[in-house]
């Protein structure tokens, strides 16, 4: 009993238990689950979201939120598509332009948050609506495809052994993210600011610069994810990536990152990503509709905070009663 309570108290422990249960269930229920192809596929279907989840973890640990990521993804994808459609630039330059546009989108929002002190919830809500609007201005109600062969291949075909480019990018970024958060000065500053920005300021940390760079990075990474999404889908619409922000934020919060900032680990986020992907995969193999999967993820998000709260409450009540007798 004591053991289980203790492991419950460690969030990563609980996530690990859930992950093992999900994987075990998948193995038991589906014969095709254990295959390299299925594993790659499992990542590939949500690869853009999990790339953005990495930077989102930093933003939330910093005590802010970026609701605009999915819109920036769509906007960047549309930039690539429209530049390509008009043959204005070589395709690689179009991709570079999209990345710059994403970084700029982050810069603008970051300026309002870091330098003017506006709440990021409001600023990035405006960004969510506004950047999607800009995507709509560019592409209107068309669907633009017909990208160069090499671009589509990068998005759809394996690059290294069975592994596609996007997955390589994710793994590389994940390693960098873990190192930065745990042992770079920047990571420590992000955490301290998330705990208490005033303490950071009074310690001589340039709070504005840290926040601004986070938002620029968030925009840049979202744009990269948008370009990868365009490559994978092979065609872009104004609504590309719409609603992704919910999944991304769910991955981060389920991973134990506090919505109030200041605490969270990337190990937790990694586990939560694996849980969500495996669960979706398993449900998909079991022919559960995508819609129902979304509902289940929503429930998981709530339960991820509710269950530990209830367990703690019960434990406290039991200790209280024990004290009385």
């Amino acid at each position: 009993m004591r053991l289980s309570l203790k492991s419950l108290r460690s969030w990563e422990g609980l996530l690990l238990v859930i992950l093992i249960a999900v994987v075990a269930l998948n193995i038991a229920l589906s014969p095709v689950y254990l295959g390299v192809g299925n594993f790659i596929n499992l990542f590939q279907l949500s690869i853009e979201k999990i790339i953005v989840a990495l930077i989102m973890a930093f933003v939330i640990i910093n005590g802010e939120i970026d609701l605009s990521v999915a819109s920036v993804m769509g906007f960047a994808a549309c930039v690539v598509a429209v530049v390509h459609e008009n043959n204005a630039l070589p395709f690689a330059a179009a991709v570079a332009l999209a990345l710059v546009v994403g970084a700029l989108a982050g810069l603008v929002q970051g300026y309002f948050v870091a330098h003017m002190g506006l709440p990021s919830l409001a600023v990035t809500l405006a960004g969510l609506i506004g950047f999607r609007g800009m995507a709509r201005m560019l592409v209107e109600d068309r669907s633009i495809g017909d990208f160069p062969e090499w671009f589509n291949a990068l998005g759809q075909k394996p690059l290294l052994g069975p592994i596609p480019l996007a997955l390589l990018i994710f793994v590389g970024m994940a390693v960098i993210a873990v190192i930065v958060l745990q042992s770079a000065a920047f990571g420590r500053y992000v955490t301290v600011i998330g705990n208490n920005a005033d303490v950071a300021r009074y310690s001589g940390i340039d709070v504005k610069r840290v926040k601004l760079s986070l938002f620029v990075l968030s925009g840049l990474v979202a744009a990269l994810a948008g370009v990868l999404l365009a490559a994978r889908l092979g065609a872009v619409r104004a609504s590309t990536g719409e609603g992704f922000e919910l999944d991304i934020i769910t991955m981060v919060l389920l991973g134990g990152v506090s919505i109030f900032g200041g605490s969270g680990s990337l190990v937790g986020v990694g586990l939560s990503i694996l849980i969500i992907l495996n669960m979706r995969n398993g449900l998909g193999l079991a022919n559960v509709e995508a819609n129902t999967q979304t509902g289940i993820i929503g429930a998981l998000l709530i339960l991820s905070v509710l269950v530990p709260n209830l367990v703690n409450g019960l434990r406290r009540a039991r200790v209280g009663r024990a004290g009385h007798t």
Binding site: V123, G130, R132, M134
Partner: peptide, 19 residues
């Protein structure tokens, strides 16, 4: 198709000036 872009801008401007 411009509507949402302008709406986003409006919210941003409103929040910023207000603040």
């Amino acid at each position: 198709f411009w509507r949402d872009a302008l709406l986003g801008l409006l919210i941003l401007v409103a929040v910023a000036t207000d603040y």
